Amino acid sequence: MADEPLPEHQPPPGVDTRTIEAVGLVTEALETTERARGYLYSFHQLTGSADLKLGEAVDKLHDAGHHDLAEEIEREIVGRNVIPGRWTFQIMEAYDDTYWGPFREMEQRVRDKLTEGRRHLYEAQMKEDRRTHGHRHHTAVPD
């Protein structure tokens, strides 16, 4: 078997380097939003965990006889919106529907229109440029 990339990691005929670079940047930008979305999920889960812990703390304050303070925390903080009208799950849903989902669709549309839907062509070209051809740890594809 020849030591070359699979067809899905080779540019379609007639696709130039500048197009591959541009599509690669669109994909890289989407990857960055994927990371941002992960941070939002962390925010969502951490905030939810903090609210549950605070609920436990309220129970302990009640058990210790600090009813006024426990009730104040429960009334003012436990279950509170993190931004007006929204808990974190609503922020996630709005992000997904307003930004992340349409961004994913656009990135797919760009790849479909310009590179026959092929993914990571920029990286595949980089791998070809950087690997040592003929070296057993630098093969184009797995054995």
Rank of each mutant, 00 (worst) to 15 (best):
130 R>A: 13
33 T>R: 00
99 Y>E: 02
16 D>C: 08
32 T>M: 03
133 H>D: 15
30 L>G: 03
109 R>I: 11
116 E>H: 14
7 P>Y: 09
120 H>I: 01
135 H>Y: 05
116 E>S: 14
116 E>P: 04
98 T>Q: 02
5 P>C: 07
138 H>P: 09
132 T>F: 09
62 H>D: 11
46 L>K: 12
21 E>N: 15
79 G>R: 08
15 V>H: 14
13 P>H: 08
56 E>G: 12
60 K>Q: 14
96 D>E: 15
93 E>Y: 13
51 D>W: 08
67 H>S: 10
55 G>E: 13
23 V>G: 05
129 D>W: 11
112 D>A: 09
40 L>C: 05
118 R>W: 07
8 E>I: 05
72 E>R: 02
136 R>L: 10
9 H>I: 00
4 E>D: 10
85 G>C: 09
76 E>K: 01
135 H>M: 03
114 L>P: 09
94 A>M: 03
20 I>E: 10
70 A>D: 09
96 D>N: 15
112 D>T: 07
81 N>Q: 08
90 Q>H: 15
75 R>E: 03
27 T>P: 02
117 G>K: 04
87 W>Q: 15
55 G>M: 14
14 G>M: 08
135 H>P: 04
101 G>E: 06
110 V>R: 05
52 L>Q: 14
77 I>H: 01
108 Q>M: 09
108 Q>Y: 07
39 Y>V: 02
11 P>V: 11
1 M>L: 06
41 Y>L: 08
51 D>K: 09
58 V>W: 03
86 R>I: 02
36 A>S: 02
15 V>L: 06
52 L>T: 13
1 M>Y: 06
62 H>S: 06
131 R>Y: 06
139 T>H: 08
143 D>A: 07
134 G>P: 14
22 A>N: 07
139 T>S: 08
102 P>M: 00
127 K>L: 09
82 V>N: 01
29 A>V: 11
111 R>Y: 05
99 Y>R: 01
74 E>G: 02
71 E>C: 01
27 T>V: 07
16 D>H: 13
60 K>S: 11
41 Y>F: 12
20 I>A: 10
87 W>A: 11
97 D>K: 13
112 D>P: 04
27 T>I: 02
11 P>I: 05
89 F>Y: 11
16 D>M: 03
110 V>N: 05
72 E>C: 03
76 E>D: 04
20 I>G: 12
86 R>S: 03
